[in-house]
């Protein structure tokens, strides 16, 4: 089952096969978690967000339109959940990308100055900019896929991505 395409797995889920959904979860849990983490900045919250997003996708699977790629649809749900999560946070609560936590395995890597600066710079980006940076660079999605996920025109995705990069450049290299 692990090799089955998303489309087949979704069809199996719709017929009531929960194992097929489990396969989909295993297939996408890391990229979804990564995206959630990038937006909410806390590993525990990111886990919750990812879990909720998977639950929602399961509940609403009948509404999934197979014109779109399954993972695009999942990303859409995760991004929405993560943004909602941020809105529910108290104002001015610290928002640090990859906050070190007990289970955070990359704590050790935080010592790397370059990586740390980059994390800080991403953290300080406006939310919409952060999302496009994550989808493009972490998930390597195309402009079109990002446009589907964010429900934006491709040209808006491009311009938002460019603005985000310029802002990152300014923050990192001061130019």
């Amino acid at each position: 089952m692990a090799e089955a395409s998303d489309k087949i797995l979704v069809e199996m889920c719709l017929k009531g096969d929960n194992k097929a959904f489990d396969t989909l979860v295993r297939r996408y849990e890391l990229p979804m978690y990564r995206t959630a983490l990038g937006i909410v900045g806390d590993s525990d919250l990111a886990r919750d967000v990812t879990q909720t997003a998977f639950m929602k996708s399961w509940e609403k699977l009948t509404a999934y339109n197979d014109e779109y790629k399954f993972y695009s649809w999942l990303y859409r749900i995760v991004v929405h959940e993560a943004l909602n999560c941020n809105r529910g946070k108290k104002k001015n609560s610290p928002l640090s990308l990859y906050q070190p936590g007990a289970e955070n395995p990359h704590l050790i890597l935080q010592k790397k100055e370059e990586s740390q600066n980059l994390r800080k710079a991403i953290d300080r980006l406006p939310e919409d900019y952060k999302v496009v940076i994550l989808l493009r660079h972490f998930e390597e999605l195309s402009y079109k896929e990002m446009s589907d996920i964010l429900d934006l025109e491709v040209k808006t995705v491009k311009s938002r991505l460019y603005s985000a990069r310029i802002l990152l450049r300014k923050k990192l290299y001061n130019r």
Partner: peptide
């Protein structure tokens, strides 16, 4: 920046599977 972001991506792991 793009290359460094890829490196950063690879640093992220999920400690415990959600499944």
């Amino acid at each position: 920046i793009s290359e460094n972001l890829v490196k950063l991506k690879n640093e992220i792991e999920l400690a415990e599977p959600l499944s």
